[in-house]
Design a protein around this nucleic acid. Structure first.
Length: 433
DNA sequence: TCTGCCGGGTT
DNA sequence: AACCCGGCAGA
C-alpha cells in the first residue's frame, strides 16, 4: 500500500478535525474486514495503517489509509477485473461475508467459490463500469460529479492514487481500530451533534481531545460501514474515497489552492463530509437475497446498483419511492429527514439531520441501499418540488436551519473560525442547511 | 434568552 | 464587494 502518505497538513493539523475525519484515522481504515482478510493474502499485508503520529491530521492520517488495495496478481484467476483481487488465498476468514472468503490457491477455486466471487464482483464493480473515462478530478466542479467520481478505471481498487473509487465491495471499512460506534452515533458526531464536536475538539488547545482518539477506543464492528468523502461544494458532489483525496480536490478545484497540503489551513475540511455507507447489504444480498425487509421494493434491484444512484442517496437520501418527488439538490439539505421518514423506518431516523448531509449513516445497511435502487430521478424533476419551496420562497424567512452553524460549532469565542457569512450575520455558508 | 440571518448601512 | 450590525423571528 503505497498509501500516499500525503504530507499531513503540517500546521494545518492543528485544526481540529471536525469532520468525519475527526475520527481517528485508524477508524477509517480502509480495509474491509473481509477484504482485508482476503486481500491481505498470506503476506498479510494488513491494510491496517497505523495511524501516523501526526495525530488527527486528516490529510496525513487518512492518506495513510489510502487503502490497502489488494493487488493480488493471483486474483486474476477469478477472471474478474481488479476486484476481489485480494481474494487469493487468505488465512484470515472473512468475517463479513459468508461467501468463500478464502480462495484456494490460484486455479484452485472451486466452482461455487468462483461463482460467488463473480457475483460479488459483478456486484461491486458493475457501477464502476458506468463511467469509463479515467478522470480523477476535473479542474472544476462538474455538473456531474457523480459521474466524475465514477470515472475511474474499473480496477480502481488497485489504484494507488487512492483517489476515490467506490469499491464498496472491497471497502467495507471496518476500522480495526476502535472507533466510535458508528452509524447513528457517527452521524451525530460528525454533524448532528454540535456539542460533541465542540467539546471534543478543543481548538488549538494543547490537550486537544483529538476527537478521534477517544472514540476509537471501542472495538467497533461496523463491518458494514464504508466511508467515502463527499464534496459539499455547491453543485459538486464529488465523492472520493479518501480524506486526502477529497481535500485535495477541494483545495484544487474549489479553493483554488495549490495542492500542497502544507499550505492547507484545513479549510477544506469544511467542504466535504464523510459518508458512511452500509455495505452489508451487498454482501448479504449475495448470500441471501432476502435481506431484512422483504417488503422493501429494493432488494431485488441489487444487480443494477449503479454507482450514481448508489451514491446519490448518500448525499440525498431519497426514499426509494418518494424520491421522485424530491428536488435534486445534491449537496445540502435535510435529506436525512426525508430519507428517514420515507423509508419508514428502514433506517430509522438517520441522524437527526444535521445539515450537512449527514449522509445517512444508515443504521441499517438496508437503509443505505434502499435509496440505491431507487433512482431518484429527480434530477431535473424540479417540477415536483415547487409545492414546498414555493411556500418557503414566499415566506420571508427561510425556516431556520437546524444544522450546526459556525457559531454553534466554534462558539462565539472562536469567531475567527466562523465562515465569513456567519461573521457578518449572514446565512452560514459553511454549514449549509 | 439564544440563535440564525435578513435588510440595510458603512467603508 | 467586503464588512458590519440592528433587529426580527424561531427555538
Amino acid at each position: 500500500m503505497e498509501a500516499e502518505l500525503s504530507p499531513g497538513p503540517g500546521p494545518g493539523c492543528e485544526r481540529p478535525q471536525l469532520r468525519a475525519g475527526g475520527r481517528d484515522p485508524s477508524a477509517l481504515r480502509a480495509e474491509a474486514p473481509w477484504l482485508s482478510a482476503q486481500g491481505s493474502g498470506p503476506r498479510a499485508a494488513p491494510v491496517t495503517v497505523p495511524a501516523p503520529p501526526q495525530g488527527p491530521s486528516m490529510g496525513g492520517g487518512f492518506a495513510g489509509l489510502e487503502f490497502a488495495l489488494p493487488q493480488e496478481p493471483q486474483a486474476a484467476d477469478l477472471g474478474t477485473p481488479g476486484t476481489w483481487a485480494g481474494a487469493a488465498g487468505l488465512p484470515t476468514p472473512s468475517v463479513h461475508i459468508p461467501v468463500p472468503g478464502q480462495r484456494s490457491p490460484p486455479g484452485k477455486a472451486r466452482l461455487d467459490e468462483v461463482l460467488a466471487a463473480a457475483a460479488l464482483t459483478s456486484l461491486s464493480t458493475s457501477p464502476l463500469y458506468l463511467g469509463t473515462s479515467a478522470v480523477s478530478f476535473s479542474p472544476e466542479p462538474d455538473l456531474e460529479p457523480w459521474r466524475e467520481a465514477l470515472a475511474q478505471p474499473t480496477d480502481s481498487y488497485s489504484s494507488s492514487s487512492g483517489d476515490w473509487v467506490w469499491d464498496q465491495a472491497s471497502d467495507q471499512s471496518s476500522p480495526s481500530t476502535p472507533s466510535p460506534p458508528l452509524p447513528p452515533e457517527a452521524a451525530h458526531f460528525l454533524f448532528g451533534e454540535p456539542t460533541q464536536r465542540k467539546r471534543k475538539v478543543s481548538w488549538g488547545s494543547p490537550g486537544r481531545v483529538d476527537s478521534s482518539a477517544a472514540p476509537d477506543t471501542h472495538p467497533v464492528a461496523q463491518s458494514a460501514v464504508q466511508v467515502v468523502f463527499q464534496c459539499l461544494w455547491k453543485s459538486c458532489g464529488k465523492v472520493l474515497r479518501t480524506a486526502s483525496a477529497i481535500q485535495r480536490h477541494i483545495r484544487l478545484v474549489h479553493l483554488g489552492r495549490r495542492a500542497e497540503p502544507e499550505h492547507s489551513d484545513g479549510e477544506e475540511d469544511f467542504y466535504y463530509t464523510e459518508l458512511d455507507i452500509g455495505v452489508d447489504m451487498l454482501t448479504n444480498g449475495l448470500s441471501s437475497l432476502a435481506p431484512t425487509s422483504p417488503e422493501a421494493p429494493v432488494p431485488p434491484a441489487f444487480p443494477h446498483l449503479d454507482l450514481p444512484s448508489l451514491l446519490r442517496p448518500l448525499a440525498l437520501p431519497l426514499p426509494p419511492l418518494l424520491s421522485s418527488a424530491v428536488p435534486p439538490k445534491t449537496c445540502h439539505g435535510d435529506h436525512a429527514h426525508h430519507a428517514g421518514e420515507a423509508t419508514g423506518g428502514s433506517w430509522e431516523q438517520v441522524s437527526g439531520h444535521s445539515g450537512e448531509e449527514r449522509s445517512p449513516s444508515c443504521s441499517s445497511p438496508q437503509g443505505c441501499l434502499a435509496p440505491v435502487h431507487v433512482d431518484p430521478q429527480p434530477t431535473e424533476g424540479q417540477a415536483t418540488a415547487p409545492a414546498l419551496p414555493s411556500k418557503l420562497g414566499a415566506s420571508l424567512r427561510k425556516p431556520r436551519g437546524d444544522a450546526k452553524k459556525c457559531r454553534k460549532v466554534y462558539g462565539t469565542d472562536h469567531r475567527d473560525l466562523w465562515c465569513t457569512a456567519c461573521r457578518w450575520k449572514k446565512a452560514c455558508q459553511r454549514f449549509l442547511d
